[in-house]
Design a protein around this nucleic acid. Sequence first.
DNA 1: GCGTTAAAGCAAATATTTTGCGTTAGAGGA
DNA 2: TCCTCTAACGCAAAATATTTGCTTTAACGC
Lengths: 184, 184
Amino acid sequence: MVEKPAVRPGGRSARVQRAVHEAVKTLDEEVPRDKLSVPLVAERAGVTPSTIYRRWGSLKELLADVAAERLQPDAPVADTGSLEGDLMAWAGEYMEEMTSTPGQQMLADTLGSTSLEQRQRCLKAQQHQLQLILSRAEARGETPLPTVEHLLDGIMAPLTYRLSYAPQSLSNANLAQWIAATLR
Amino acid sequence: MVEKPAVRPGGRSARVQRAVHEAVKTLDEEVPRDKLSVPLVAERAGVTPSTIYRRWGSLKELLADVAAERLQPDAPVADTGSLEGDLMAWAGEYMEEMTSTPGQQMLADTLGSTSLEQRQRCLKAQQHQLQLILSRAEARGETPLPTVEHLLDGIMAPLTYRLSYAPQSLSNANLAQWIAATLR
DNA sequence: GCGTTAAAGCAAATATTTTGCGTTAGAGGA
DNA sequence: TCCTCTAACGCAAAATATTTGCTTTAACGC
């Protein structure tokens, strides 16, 4: 039911997808979540509701798709000069973004979705970013290097767990501690 | 919007709540998720849809409420004779349950809900169970003992992270490794 | 250009959600 | 025990949202 990346970015499909995604993002800032509806999004995007239902199936899946897309990193990871610094900068930014109200909403949208697919996209993106950070550390000659899996389990997992279950308990100190413990 | 524990278990409110929860649990095994609707639940529970809408607000919130309730442990934690054994038994059972299709559904229902409240209930329950396990270890004289927070970050967090993002990658070996590393 | 076809539009048929108002069950007091 | 008060429920009409069959459009490959 979910659209594969369009083969040609200029096609009609791609145009509709962009318009709909854009409409969701805009409206999400204008109306409270329980007022967001498929007909509303459709009107803003200039398409008919049935187009959205046929393509995404439901509002829930559409929101998950948009959220997963927004979670794809657009900015390259900052290079602070050390593995620990890079991790702190990158995970810190992620934490910052995800503790905000729209961030919490995005998280709920992805985690609440029925299809694993969207979540796997997010995981892939995180793995990719971490791999980049690790490669830079390797180039610097830092050693010993942890694996991506290690970083996920030691840093991203506790971070994500708290983002869902106790976001107010999160702090940079927490994060720094997980990073330090994982690199040890 | 969510019902506080009924003051009197015999009252009408409590009866309706039980009937509705029961209906959700039964129907969840009978019909595919996208066919589950408020009117359907209402009919099975013998109440009118408006009762459910007035009390829970939406199907999503009702499902989150039911899921959170199901995540409250009903069986006491097994006593295997050691902290490591108890953790493995308890977390293993949780992992087992949550990798199943209904388990994945419950997880999505709670994590996808708008209200933190339900997730906090689950966190409280996990903390309580872990505290129980720790108290037993303390009584046995095992030392040094980790904190509940440590166990959450080291074991439950990676477990939960993978349950959401890569459930197929989970194994007892993984779990055993997290437990061993956390107790070290 | 020209046929082919996947995706979009349109509108009617269903289904769900909301709402106003009457009814009922049960708590608390005389 | 009975009476009163009120929160929660039932009912049914109105408003919205969703599904569906059929038509139209636009982009791909020839």
